[in-house]
Amino acid sequence: MTAKAFTRPLMYLILALLSILFLIPVYVVIVTSLKPLDEVTLAKMWALPTHIDFSSYAEAFSKLAPNFWNSVYLVIPATILSAFLGSLNGYVLSKWRFKGADWIFTAVLFGMFIPYQSILIPLIRFLSHIGLYNTIPGLILVHVVYGIPITTLMFRNFYASIPMEMIESAQIDGAGIFKIYRHIMIPLSLLGLVVVGIWQFTNIWNEFLFAVTITTTDQHPIMVALQNLSGSQIVQWNVQMAGAIIAALPTLLVYIFLGKFFVRGMLAGSVKG
């Protein structure tokens, strides 16, 4: 009993300390981004701003705004398209399994783990060939294609929880593959769509390698623009930190409001299917 009385406060203490450690970057980023330029000095780095100043946000946003919108134009169609494809595939692979379907599924899944460097050289040539190099639609295509494995996996696992009996009784009632998909699967897919949508949204928003190699300045999504903004002491640190917050905001908001689904997607993408 005494041990327990001692360990519980200790547990809270440890958790609190670790939380503080984890929040240090957040503190630094927020504090720095709110400082006026003359307070962004080494000596005062850890101090709170004397007054709150949003000018670094204005400057960062003026630099990042076009790229921010590029990311928006990229992420919305790419998320919708890849969720649609994933749902179709998941439907077939969970409810209409044919011989060899498991092998095909495994082969598709492998695409999720490859280092994208190993397809980058042909990919760029291919995109150039079809006129989509350095375009947002080109990036959309890339994210849709390389999103197929993960969205398929997520929907397949999700649909697996829909009992086969429902499908079979619909079949007895004479419903075909389309009808079942439209009238049974889609209405039941809402949760799956949210999870997959959030996952793809976060991943595509945060992606960097395709973004930096397939697009150039005007078409760069926000992460590349943020990287270009940083890494030098010429651009003031408050602006860089404000830029980091702007770039992180959409996915952070998604996490804050829909965190449960985000974590579900995270687990769905890894737990054995």
Binding site: N206, F208, M223, A244, V254, Y255, I256, F262
Partner: peptide
């Protein structure tokens, strides 16, 4: 929450 961030950030 850091999981929701990009490696770039």
């Amino acid at each position: 929450f850091p999981m929701a961030l990009s490696f770039i950030v």
